[in-house]
Structures are given as C-alpha cells and as structure tokens.
Design a protein around this nucleic acid. Structure first.
Lengths: 225, 225
DNA sequence: CCGAACCTTTCAAGAACCTTTCACGGAAAA
DNA sequence: TTTTCCGTGAAAGGTTCTTGAAAGGTTCGG
C-alpha cells in the first residue's frame, strides 16, 4: 500500500513516515505541492495525506486540481486550520476525511486504515484474458472496457472458464453448472454453449481450446503450445 | 438516498431527521438496535448514522454484528464518548467515520456526503451521463442544465441508475428501493418505471440498457457493444 | 476407414421483458 | 367543498430473447 505524505514540517513528516512505515505502509514524502504533483505522475498511490499549509501553494488548490483531473485516490487532510468552515470546505471540495492538528497518531492510523478498507476493501478479483476482464464482484465481464452482454447461461460458461483460465475444465463440471435446476441436458448442450460463447469472445483475443476427451480451456489468442 | 438514523435521544433525532430531510435525504429513524436490525432486512440504506449509546444494546456490538454479516453499508458513528480509544475502537471495528457530540450539523452533513460520494465509486460531486447531471450535493438531476421535473418514483429509479452508472443494477435492488413502505409491488412494476424513465431521459443522450435476467444499466447513448 | 467426439445450424416453446391502458387516491386548483 | 390533475401501481396483451433439443456435418484417433 503506497501512501503519499504531503507535509512541509520536517519533524512531523519524519514521525509520520516512521510510524506509518512500521504499520506496513510504503510512504513517500513530499514537502511541496509541486513535488507532490510531480511524483504522482511517476507513481501510483493508494492514499494521500495532505497538509493544507504548503510553502508553494494552498493545499486546497492542489486538492481541487487533482479532482478536476479526475484523480480518484482517497485524500485525508491534515492541518492546523480547524475552523468549521475549513473542515467543510475541505470535504466538499473532494477530501475524504479531515483531521486537525494536534492529533493522535493512532487515530490518524485508524482513519487511514478505514479509508483504505473502504476504497480497496472489496478485494479486487479481476481476471484478465485477452481483452476480457471478469469482475467477480459485480457479476460482470468487460470486453474492451465495455460491459459485455451475455445471457445467463453464456455468462455461467464463460465465468467457469475464466476462473480456471489456462486450465482444462471438464465437461462434467460445465454440465453440472448449467443443469443447476436438476434437469438433465441434451448430450450436446455443452457443445452448443461453447460454440455460442466462442463466437462472443472471439473478437476480444480470447480463445476456447478443445482438449479432446477431457474438456475445454480458455486462453489468450495466439498462446500456442 | 436512504439514511438510517439509529439514535435514542428523541430531540436530537428529530433535529437530524429535519435537517437531513431538508438536504434531500430520505431518513428513517430507529431508537433501538433491535429495530435498526429489523428495518435493515426490509429496506436498503445508503448510509447508517449510529449512536453508540442505545437502550437495548451497545452500538459497537451492532456495528460488529453488521460487519460480521458483511453488510457493506458505510457507517458513521455519532456519540458522546470522545476518548481517543473510543474513536479508534469504533473505526477499527468497521465504522467509516466518527464524530463526537457536540458536533456541528453542517460538518455532519459534509461527512455524510463525503462517505456517500466515496462509496459510489466517485470522488466528484456530480455524475454525468449523456446530457444528464446528477448533483449529489443538492440531490437534483439536470438535463441540459435545466432541473428535470420527475415524480418521486422516477427520481428514485434514475438516481440509483446514475449512482451506479455503467454497472448493472439488479431488479431486486430497484424493487427494494421502490417498496420503501413494505408493500410488495406488482411483478412488472419495475418494468413500468423503467419504461417511464426511459421516455424521460431518451432526449438527453442517456440510455437504459436491459441485461436480461439481471437488471438494468445506465449509459451514454451510442456506447455500443 | 470407422466410430467417437465434437462442431454448427436450425427451430419451437416459453420465459423475460415492453408497452399501453385503466382505476384509484391524494394533492392542488377552482 | 368540489373539481381537476397527476402520480401510482395493477392488469393484460404483444414482443423479443433465451434456452435446450434435434439433426447433420466435421475432425480426430486408432
């Protein structure tokens, strides 16, 4: 987990880097707004701790800039300004949390933890094959970033194959999944569905290979032997 | 936007209901933990404001219970207990934010807003699809810059779809939202409302796509595939 | 070359969904 | 108070899409 700490007070910054590092975060320090902007181009952060009183620019200005640029990273403001209006302004302009100095390190840690939990807590279970992405959380398959329209059965088949991508999935397992209602399927139902799914995913660089006598296997197109 | 307020102090609760309702939220009150748990089964909430001092159980206990049950709804704790350990405990056990009494109503509103904004994947205060803009600050939908006149139900439907724009919203979730009063709806009520909303938003470059067997998805017109 | 396994196309039934219409009830206007 | 209007939700019939079966063709292994 990468945290960007934008804070010009060297003593406080050192203390925070030390504490947060000990908690298992990887912390990068920035003492000016300009440097913070610069380093963000090179590196991806999971959270920003932002002091409003920076030597070269107003922290709120940086905040607005980032949100205008559609940077979605969670931001926690940390500042000496503690007027009610400061707090509200900070939050309304895009910050996720706001703590006034002096503060307890343990509370800051807890709030950082809560933010990261909220933003990345739904552990990302994305599986990518070709230009297909399976998002198991929202029951959706993206093709070239667009939600792919599949019927229920087609989705079932493709999901099984994606979850076991690169491995052979035997026909029995597919049959079991498709016959969830108990009815037995025609003996070639699997083949029909594999055929349908093949046509759907072909344009997106994913291929279902047949393993005769065993089952099927999903892989990136062009992944020969 | 539905908020569940769990607070046993009638005076404070009334004040909060009044303020939050005026800000465009639909607020449901619960004065006991047991009732809160009960009402959550029937209705879908976007946020819970939780007082720790309840007559029948400890608020933290309720919090733990919900998180154990993997209820993902954001929770803001509101309490008289202001020890640093109380704060940390509350957050570590699954709360997203923590405010101590006495507090400023405006700050509570701002923090509620930040949480809802963050939980719907956003970081900006407005969501734009086609020529429609949902402003999450004043709970209004603009079409071509003009406020759109919608009936209560139509607004509910469109808001849910806008908040989850690009993702599939299942019919159950829509049904639960529309059946806020507990009555079951006719089996095709959702379809009727989708139809009505479609007619309303069609002229503004927004489209509701059907995902058969799952639900609906709002997107910009012309986003084919 | 033969049989088994697999591919592909077609089709009917029914599920899921769309659209229109209508009646009721509450709120605003007269 | 009465009238009118609009939101709401039920009902019903029409439309589209999924599903699974059937049947004939193709490829593979022996």
């Amino acid at each position: 987990m990468n945290i960007l700490l934008v804070e010009d007070d060297a003593v406080l910054a050192d203390g925070l880097v030390y504490t947060l590092s000990n908690s298992g975060y990887s912390v990068t320090g920035a003492t000016t707004g300009a440097y913070a902007e610069h380093i963000m181009l090179a590196q991806d952060f999971d959270l920003i701790v932002l002091d409003l009183g920076l030597p070269d620019m107003d922290g709120l200005q940086l905040l607005r800039k980032l949100r205008l640029r559609k940077v979605p990273v969670p931001i926690l403001i940390l500042t000496a300004r503690d007027g009610i209006n400061d707090r509200i302004q900070g939050i309304e302009q895009g910050a996720d949390d706001y703590m006034a100095k002096p503060f307890e390190l343990r509370e800051l840690e807890a709030r950082i933890h809560a933010l990261i939990r909220r933003c990345y807590g739904g552990f990302r279970n994305d599986i990518e094959i070709g230009r297909l992405i399976l998002n198991t959380l929202d029951h959706q398959i993206l093709a070239d970033g667009q939600p792919m329209m599949l019927s229920a059965r087609e989705y079932d088949v493709l999901e099984i194959l994606l979850l076991q991508a690169g491995k052979v999935v035997c026909k029995d397992r597919l049959a079991q999944r498709l016959a969830a209602d108990g009815d037995a399927l025609a003996d070639n139902a699997i083949e029909v569905y594999i055929h349908r799914v093949r046509k759907r995913i072909e344009p997106y660089g994913a291929v279902i290979r047949t393993v005769r006598g065993l089952g099927y296997l999903l892989e990136t197109a062009g992944d020969e032997k």
